[in-house]
Amino acid sequence: MRAKANALTQGFIRCHDCGYLVKTVDHLLSCPRCNSHLHARHPHSLQRTTALLVSSFFLYIPANIFPIMTVNQFGAGDAHTIAGGIVELIDSGMIPIGMLVLVASILVPSSKLIGIGLLLLCAHFRWQINARRWTVMYRVIAFVGRWSMLDIFMISILVDLVDFGGIQIIAGPAATAFAAVVILTMFAAENFDPRLLWDNQKNL
């Protein structure tokens, strides 16, 4: 079954950029329609994704430990971490917004790190899994990643607006680390090739 279904085993390569199908026997290096490089699968998909994932994992630690912003009130500084900001929102009764930030800046990044890690393990060790379900997981991870930037945008607005004589909000070092985590995991998801999951299945 597998040999029948896959385009690659049937002798076709799909262009990543424009979706054009090219015959493998033509040995073309670039797509005749859009000129982008042709690859049957993303080149070095697993290595690149692993590298990006490991670096974002290490950046995730400072992103959660250091303050993401500091509220200066008449000389007294009050540092907030990501989790601290959410607790404060929920304490002051803003439960739906607190939940939104909780999902966007804690649940999404951490489940993304775990999810991409699982996808990598699955592709590397050729686990026999329900490929359709895992592809859906990949799709969710790839879709949801950008929404974590919410925290960064919020800080840019707060830093800009709250700047009066006595009261001031300053962005903290965790903001850089967190932005880097979001961007690196987005690149990681982009570099992972879900077709590797399907290639490894013995019986489809």
Partner: peptide, 15 residues
């Protein structure tokens, strides 16, 4: 347009 008359799924490579 399509010279091959086929198409492939970008995420599972089904022909």
């Amino acid at each position: 347009m399509n010279n091959t008359n086929y198409d492939a799924c970008p995420e599972c490579d089904l022909l």
